[in-house]
Simulated scan of single mutants.
Amino acid sequence: MGKQLSPASREAAGQFPYLRVANVHLGRIDYADVNTMGFSSREREIYGLRPGDILLNEGQSLELVGRSAVYEGADGVYCFQNTLVRFRPSEQVLSAYAQVIFERWLATGVFAAIAKQTTSIAHLGSERFAALDFPLLPLAEQRRIVEVIDAVSAQERAIEASIAKLDMLKVSVMAELASMELGAFEGILERGPQNGIYKPASSYGSEGTPIVRIDSFRGGPSDFTRNLLRVSLSAGEVERYGLVTGDVLINRVNTPELVGKSTAVGRLVEPTVFESNMMRCRVRADRAVPTFVETWLGSSLAKTHFRMRAKSAISQASINRSDVRSCPFPRLDVPRQLNFLKRLAAVRDQQQLEEVELAKLGDLNRGIIDDLLDSGGRARARSAP
């Protein structure tokens, strides 16, 4: 482990840069925010880093304890703090191979299993770390494994870059809405906005009519065919507050950042109602497509409108019918709305395909590492002090 930071070391002569937990991320070291403290010549020999050293988070949240990265800087340019554990491989171990093992141990909870929890911080412990069984394979086998992992990782990075570009394209498509001529939301309404039904907690149970609540959707596409609470209602209440496919629900009471979140009702498998902290709008079929309305209400312009009109009370904010009616809405006819949705769907579909491929590569990567952990010998991990 590294040197402990103290008031004396902060003021001591011989200030020298050192790395700490905040600098060591998974697979990379961030040198943008490096602190200094006093190190004597002897301490610089002890705590100085060499290329190929691996630094692991010694004190972290339980799920991140053991997070590691290979130091690839110059010899002796940085030291390290005691919030990190240094692993200095012997001639029998490649740094890149050891990093593969440590990343797998982090992902599978090996580090979390040996960590000692103190309040919100878990400690890896250099002795507990050193006592772990390390899968020691011949150097040629280590190189082969690293090459395979690197090849898969390169493919993962390429797909991640593609997903990022698709994200930018999606943002660009959505940004087109901001340049369109705007009217008012009330111009596309057939009915509403209508507040939902309020029922006391005693009315909820395992039987009754499914009810959509504010935690039933995130904003955007939703599924109201399952996982809804049920409430006891009269036939008249079900008729008055019953949803139909194409209805648009707008959250009228929520935290300031979530007020106004919206969804278009899709397929329903039984009569379903909505609760009082949201409003239901029914749009005219000749003027608006419900999924386009859903998309628009999730745009930055619509969200800004609701946040500016919201009335705050402690930790909650609310909007009313007038705020919904006055919400801006693009002057686009139905064919152009459908064309916009088609273009946006093409980007989203391609992004989903890329994400599926990325998940497959992740499974392949984990499978390769699992295979290597099931083969070869076992030796003790050793970390330099």
Results as ranks from 00 to 15, higher is better:
1 M>W: 05
11 E>R: 03
11 E>Q: 07
19 L>H: 08
20 R>I: 00
21 V>F: 01
24 V>H: 01
24 V>M: 03
30 D>E: 15
33 D>I: 06
44 R>F: 03
46 I>E: 10
47 Y>F: 15
47 Y>D: 01
54 I>C: 00
62 L>K: 11
63 E>H: 09
63 E>C: 08
65 V>Q: 01
72 E>A: 09
75 D>P: 06
75 D>S: 05
78 Y>M: 10
78 Y>F: 15
84 L>A: 09
93 V>S: 04
93 V>K: 02
97 Y>Q: 06
97 Y>R: 06
101 I>V: 11
103 E>L: 01
105 W>C: 03
111 F>R: 00
114 I>L: 11
116 K>Y: 09
118 T>C: 11
119 T>V: 13
119 T>P: 03
121 I>R: 11
122 A>E: 05
123 H>N: 07
127 E>H: 08
138 P>V: 13
144 R>Y: 02
148 V>E: 00
152 V>H: 02
153 S>L: 00
170 K>N: 13
172 S>R: 12
178 A>M: 06
183 G>K: 03
186 E>C: 12
187 G>S: 14
194 Q>I: 10
196 G>C: 09
196 G>E: 08
201 A>K: 03
203 S>L: 05
203 S>H: 12
206 S>I: 15
211 I>C: 01
212 V>H: 01
215 D>R: 12
216 S>E: 07
218 R>S: 14
226 R>E: 09
227 N>R: 13
231 V>D: 12
233 L>Y: 06
237 E>L: 08
239 E>S: 15
243 L>K: 04
246 G>C: 10
253 V>G: 00
253 V>R: 00
257 E>H: 10
259 V>E: 09
260 G>F: 00
261 K>Y: 01
277 N>H: 08
278 M>I: 04
279 M>S: 05
280 R>F: 01
285 A>C: 13
291 T>W: 04
294 E>W: 02
296 W>A: 08
296 W>S: 06
297 L>I: 06
298 G>E: 13
298 G>A: 12
300 S>T: 15
301 L>E: 11
310 A>S: 07
313 A>L: 09
316 Q>A: 02
319 I>A: 06
322 S>F: 12
323 D>K: 06
326 S>K: 03
327 C>L: 03
328 P>W: 10
331 R>C: 14
332 L>R: 12
339 N>P: 13
347 V>L: 07
352 Q>Y: 02
353 L>H: 05
356 V>S: 12
371 D>I: 00
372 L>C: 04
380 R>N: 10
383 S>F: 11
